[in-house]
Design a protein around this nucleic acid. Structure first.
Lengths: 130, 130
DNA sequence: TTCCTTGCAAATCGTTTGCATAATG
DNA sequence: CATTATGCAAACGATTTGCAAGGAA
């Protein structure tokens, strides 16, 4: 089952690369529709899944019940604002050591971890204090 | 909107306290039904949400698309086996320092983090190697 | 009697899938 | 030509909700 080119998939990936706010499938759909008005939500979902499976994009499960997607596949962490729901990249030191810490008293094999931070983002801090 | 006693809620919480495998709402429903055959799934969901909101239980979003629930509200971490999907408690040192690390270059306010470890559990390691 | 809780069923939401047709290699 | 991708609509699974009736304070 080799992949064949598709303009839709290309456009989906291009759109994702222009955004650093980790859009949901629906947001991708809304935007790609500007270029391809006939594209269907199903096609968007199929291609997002395809791109995530091949490792070209990341599927983020931030805990709000909706999947978010990220074209930046380099290792990094995310922050979710509990006020406005925005998903923001964090620039921080590597914390892979926690995987070792977790494995110390565990008899299985730990391969990695999913971590996301939560709190109030910069913008929402200003709104609240004003 | 103060809470009123309900046998169903009591039984749901009691059942959760007997399990350390972090059941889903459906599993809770199946089991509580043994005591209360007429209980509805809706009631189970309503009470699980209620108990989670009051902090009496934890709602775990482990990334498999289904919510899991935990009556152990003491701070601890979870491991999810990618083979069998089981959710297991981890006994490990505190890693709250990662919240500080994450906050160093961030202008918002980080309140905490959700971390899930994944890999192959002890049982599945044995199965695979045999 | 007030108001929270229940059971039931219908509704919702995000996502997946079947199918006939279109596009790619 | 063989196969993958598409659009559309229907199907799905988990969870939520409206409502009339039941139970707690």
């Amino acid at each position: 089952m080799s992949l064949k080119y598709s303009r839709q998939r290309e456009e989906i990936k291009n759109f994702l690369m222009t955004r650093k706010d980790h859009p949901t499938a629906d947001v991708v759909y809304m935007n790609v529709r500007k270029q391809y008005p006939n594209i269907s939500l199903g096609t968007v979902y199929r291609n997002l899944t395809l791109l995530a499976d091949t490792g070209e994009i990341l599927r983020l499960r931030v805990g709000d019940g909706v999947d978010h997607f990220d074209a930046d596949t380099s290792p990094h962490y995310h922050f979710i604002c509990t006020e406005c729901g925005s998903v923001i990249d964090l620039e921080m030191d590597n914390i892979d050591s926690i995987t070792e810490i977790a494995g110390m008293n565990f008899d299985g094999q730990i391969k990695g971890h999913f971590t996301y931070f939560h709190g109030t983002c910069g913008d929402c801090c200003k709104k609240t204090s004003s």
